[in-house]
């Protein structure tokens, strides 16, 4: 497994750059992953990242994108629970990119 140095600390990641041990996650890791994904983190991004972390804590999986969209809509309102909004924040796939930034594994059901 590859290792990356983030703010002076070593972290193990998989071949696609996802964090191996999600208990190691912190804001430095999120910022590093965001740079890797060429995403500039705003409050709107953090809202999704934090939502994903809560979802994972509750269900022990990263949601598929349509499940994420539906669940965000339920919690944060329909103006955020849609593909357009989420793809604007994470152009290469909200589940894939936001999960990486949130320190979660790649979503189940994501091909």
């Amino acid at each position: 497994m590859p290792m990356v140095d983030i703010a002076g600390k070593d972290y193990e990641v998989d071949e696609e750059g996802y964090l191996i041990d999600l208990s190691q996650w912190n804001e430095d890791v999120a910022k590093y992953m965001a740079v890797e994904e060429k995403v500039e983190l705003t409050d709107s991004h953090w809202e999704v990242v934090n939502f994903l972390r809560e979802y994972y804590a509750e269900y022990q999986i990263a949601p598929a994108v349509r499940v994420l969209t539906k669940a965000i809509g339920k919690k944060l309102g329909p103006d955020k629970g849609n593909n357009k909004y989420l793809y604007e924040l994470f152009p290469y796939g909200p589940a894939k990119q936001a999960c990486k930034i949130a320190g979660l594994p790649k979503p189940t059901g994501c091909i």
Binding site: E58, Y59, Q60, I61, P63, V67, K70, A71
Partner: peptide
């Protein structure tokens, strides 16, 4: 090991 029993509760969302 991972506690995947919690994941059964996510099935409704799927």
């Amino acid at each position: 090991v991972k506690d995947f029993s919690k994941t059964y509760r996510a099935l409704d969302g799927y």
